[in-house]
Amino acid sequence: MDLSVIFKNAPFMLGGLILSFQLAAITIIAGLILGIVLASARLSSKSVFYYPATIYIHFFRGLPLILVIFWLYFLAPVILGTSVNEFTAAALAFVVFEAAYFAEIVRSGIQAVPFGQVMAAHSTGLSPLQTARFVVIPQALRNMVPALVTQSVVVFQDTSLGYVIGLREFLRRVNLTDAREARSVELYLFAGLVYFSICSLGSRASRRLEKRRFEAD
């Protein structure tokens, strides 16, 4: 074991980690926003909203992420008319893919709020908007936060798939370092340790939120 290889290449690899974080952050924020839109459409009684959203969600949940990344990488320039860099292509792919998963989390969180709650709120004269704001959304959020945190952890892990289109995120940089240094054991153990620490922090947060939700009930 020669750990100096890690220290020596730390700035290079950490640069990749920052890129991974950026990709995950963009995916989580934009994916969640798109997910909320899709979930609202799926909960709509109007078929012009319901069917497109439902088809979208089923479609992307039925595909492997790696395929969607390839698609976007090769399709985005055709659709947009300009070439896109690896980061933009990866971010687009992640957002459209993960939105389908976020949508299902949001939808089930809202659906878990019993309809009686809505009736009770309406019966006291609250408007539909007030009912959503004060009665449904607070409960729905509490329902979905643990799952959202778990999904965010998954998104972070998935950013490593960016390497297939040459995105120099964390794992890709570890990989490049190894090509130069030929220290596979140390480097990949280090990579594992980094992913594991970050993800277990996320899982711990999710567990704590779950517990808090349980106690509040």
Partner: peptide, 9 residues
């Protein structure tokens, strides 16, 4: 209502 429907939060 039959099942009270108080807001649990």
């Amino acid at each position: 209502f039959q099942h009270f429907e108080l807001y649990p939060h």
